[in-house]
Simulated assay, not measured.
Amino acid sequence: MPEPSAAALPSLPPLLSRVDAVIVDLDGTMVDTMGDFNEAINRMLRELALPSIDGQHIEHMVGKGSEHLLRSVLKHVLTLDGRALDAMDIEAIYPSAWASYQRHYLAINGQFSAVYAGVEEGLQVLQSRGLRLVCLTNKPTSFALPLLKAKGLGGYFEMVFGGDAFERKKPDPLPLIKTCEALGTARARTLMVGDSSNDAQAARAAGCPVVLVTYGYNHGQPVRGVDADRFVDSLKQLR
């Protein structure tokens, strides 16, 4: 898909002037959490006596919620382990894997991650414009809240919705629709800021404008090929 020309994209100041609130993604948008994923997942795999997985593979699996991530990891490592794999193999192991992963992730949450440069400055700019801020992530709420607090970002958001807050996760539009309802804002005046096609697809289907950062995960694919209103290299560019 060809990259949209700069002239075809609205500039950020006019775009921000047309919105009342901003929904911000977490992993890959505000915080680089790949180190946390790598550590927790490999601790889990060691506990289950399964082969390890490297960060490059994990990065391509992140973005559709922890349940999808864990099933993708299990499929990958069980294949490496030489097992004749079917869905029943994964589902048989999944409950113990999920319990182990939750325990390890909560134990290390935030220790192997870092806030991207420009994130706080960008959030401060949005606040200074009087925009209401909500964090919406596919990460479980029990993981997201302590991470935001540990990284000093929790105070910027009046609400935080994790992947377990609604019946479905991004790229389904339901989380954005429900978040706009919770804010009491019109979808067309509520901006989504994320890092992947999940965020963009959800925003488009919900009728929200969307800006994507260029440094996130996006399943290992170039983010500039995604249909979005604007791309930024840093949240500081949200001016």
Score class of each variant (00 low, 15 high):
53 I>P: 05
144 A>G: 08
199 D>S: 08
76 H>N: 06
142 S>V: 14
108 I>K: 07
147 L>A: 03
113 S>C: 07
105 Y>H: 13
136 L>M: 15
164 D>H: 10
211 V>Q: 04
134 V>D: 13
227 D>L: 14
200 A>T: 12
54 D>M: 00
32 D>Y: 07
156 Y>S: 10
122 G>D: 05
62 V>F: 00
63 G>K: 08
37 F>Y: 12
19 V>R: 13
76 H>V: 01
33 T>M: 07
57 H>Y: 02
97 A>M: 09
25 D>E: 11
34 M>Q: 02
224 R>H: 11
39 E>R: 13
226 V>D: 09
44 M>R: 10
67 E>P: 01
56 Q>S: 06
175 P>H: 11
37 F>R: 13
108 I>C: 06
208 C>Q: 04
81 D>M: 06
165 A>G: 12
183 L>R: 05
10 P>F: 05
28 G>W: 03
150 A>Y: 01
68 H>D: 09
43 R>Q: 15
94 Y>D: 14
97 A>L: 11
152 G>Q: 12
77 V>S: 08
220 G>V: 00
206 A>P: 07
192 M>S: 13
150 A>V: 01
14 P>Y: 03
15 L>Q: 04
168 R>I: 00
40 A>F: 01
119 V>M: 14
78 L>P: 06
4 P>Y: 09
158 E>A: 13
118 G>T: 02
19 V>K: 12
226 V>R: 14
204 R>D: 12
154 G>K: 04
208 C>I: 02
105 Y>Q: 06
68 H>W: 00
220 G>E: 02
124 Q>R: 15
139 K>Q: 07
63 G>E: 05
32 D>I: 11
237 Q>A: 15
61 M>A: 10
187 R>I: 01
98 W>S: 14
225 G>C: 08
211 V>H: 07
26 L>A: 04
102 Q>G: 08
160 V>Y: 03
51 P>L: 03
105 Y>I: 07
217 Y>W: 06
19 V>Q: 08
132 R>D: 10
186 A>L: 13
228 A>Q: 12
37 F>K: 11
152 G>R: 05
202 A>M: 07
30 M>P: 09
152 G>H: 11
42 N>C: 04
60 H>W: 00
234 S>D: 05
101 Y>N: 07
119 V>N: 15
161 F>A: 12
63 G>V: 02
110 G>T: 00
239 R>W: 05
